[in-house]
């Protein structure tokens, strides 16, 4: 009886370990694309420049570029234990990842700035576009983090 339970628990643990990358990828996809659909919603409902300044879209675009940059390098390349050096080597990977994270944090902070500086402090009647920009960037940021750190590279070998 106890042996049976032990086997069941172990097999479940193995299953989770093998499925981990898949689940992390799906969670990251849900976060990332939900973020973009939130901003599409705001842009469709408020098409005018007065309610939703179109330049605020740059924030989400930068967040997306940061998402791509963060996930373009593997953790192995940064640590230097990958098989191939790549075109720039370990230092290049570190600088690339550093810039990527800077863009990610920068876009998140900028979205907060847009929410408070552009909508709350000016006491505009419609605050929803600012909230949408903030949530878009937050979702993309956390999607990037899940896609980067939720996956383990041991499963690739």
């Amino acid at each position: 009886m106890s042996g049976f339970l032990e086997g069941a628990r172990c097999s479940e643990c193995m299953d989770w370990g093998e499925k981990r990358n898949t689940i992390a990828s799906i969670a990251a996809g849900i976060l990332f694309f939900t973020g973009w659909w939130i901003i599409i919603d705001a842009a469709v409902i408020y098409p005018n420049m007065e309610e939703f300044n179109h330049s605020y879209h740059a924030c989400g675009v930068i967040a997306t570029i940061a998402f791509l940059m963060i996930n373009a390098v593997s953790n192995g390349q940064v640590r230097g234990d990958s098989y191939s050096e790549g075109c720039l080597g370990q230092t290049g990977a570190r600088i690339w990842l550093f810039i990527g994270f800077m863009l990610a944090f920068g876009s998140l902070i900028a979205s907060m700035w847009i929410l408070f500086g552009g909508y709350v402090a000016k006491e505009k009647p419609i605050v929803y576009p600012g909230i949408a920009v903030f949530f878009q960037n937050a979702f993309i940021f956390f999607g990037g983090l899940v896609f980067k750190f939720g996956r383990t590279e041991d499963l690739w070998q």
């Binding site: 093998e18 990358n21 898949t22 992390a24 990828s25 799906i26 990251a28 996809g29 849900i30 990332f32 694309f33 939900t34 659909w37 599409i40 919603d41 593997s74 896609f147 996956r151 499963l155 690739w156 070998q157």
Partner: peptide, 24 residues
């Protein structure tokens, strides 16, 4: 023989995106 790969995970990511878009 590998249980997962970066390319396949990217495919799951995009498939999830398409599904989310269909709901959005």
């Amino acid at each position: 023989d590998a249980t997962s790969s970066a390319c396949r995970e990217l495919a799951y990511f995009f498939t999830t995106g398409i599904v989310v878009s269909a709901f959005g």
